[in-house]
């Protein structure tokens, strides 16, 4: 199919768009539209579409705009709630992971300090066990005070980690 539009199409299309065809059309242009296939197609197609549009628009049964407006606002709010909830959920998951890790580390560490019911953890192969006692001062590691320091530190760490993740994801 050759792509060869007529150079008078624009003129014809403007008259049709303004609803002035054929009244405001010169006899010469009208004769051209009869002879030119491209312009003839354009006139037939635009008239058919304009008529179909008018017919379809008059057949439309419109609902109440108020109901649509409130549905739109409801969906907007739901989207906002979801948007806010996403980083919070991420922060919660991250904090939970940190807490689980901290609890595991604490359990292993305490098993080495005499909790008999956890003694089996101390029997784990060396690469799997953690030497957390190397992280705090000797004076604390030998007494029960180590536990009193470790738990708040880990809890704070978990909370701060969650907060950092939340703030980072909220900025995104």
């Amino acid at each position: 199919m050759s792509f060869s539009p007529c150079n008078r199409e624009k003129e014809v299309a403007e008259l049709l768009a303004r609803g002035q065809w054929p009244q405001a059309c010169t006899p010469e242009l009208r004769a051209h539209a009869r002879a030119c296939r491209s312009c003839g197609d354009l006139v037939a197609v635009i008239l058919a579409f304009q008529s179909a549009r008018a017919q379809a628009a008059s057949a439309a049964k419109l609902g109440a705009p108020g109901a649509l407006w409130w549905r739109g606002q409801l969906r907007r709010r739901n989207a906002a709630v979801e948007r806010v909830g996403r980083p919070i959920l991420g922060a919660q998951i991250f904090a939970l992971c940190i807490c689980a890790l901290a609890a595991a580390a604490l359990a292993v560490s305490q098993a080495r300090h005499g909790l008999h019911w956890l003694a089996w953890l101390a029997q784990l192969p060396q690469p799997l066990s953690l030497h957390l006692d190397a992280l705090w001062p000797f004076s604390l590691s030998s007494s029960g005070a180590g536990l009193l320091v470790l738990i708040p530190v880990l809890a704070t760490l978990a909370l701060l980690s969650g907060l950092v993740v939340y703030l980072a994801s909220e900025k995104q």
Partner: peptide, 22 residues
């Protein structure tokens, strides 16, 4: 706002429906 939307809806809904229906 809801009033502005009602006006926009009145002016555009028929042509949108015609497009979708056809």
């Amino acid at each position: 706002d809801s009033d502005a939307f009602a006006g926009f809806y009145e002016r555009s809904a028929r042509s949108l429906w015609a497009y979708l229906a056809r």
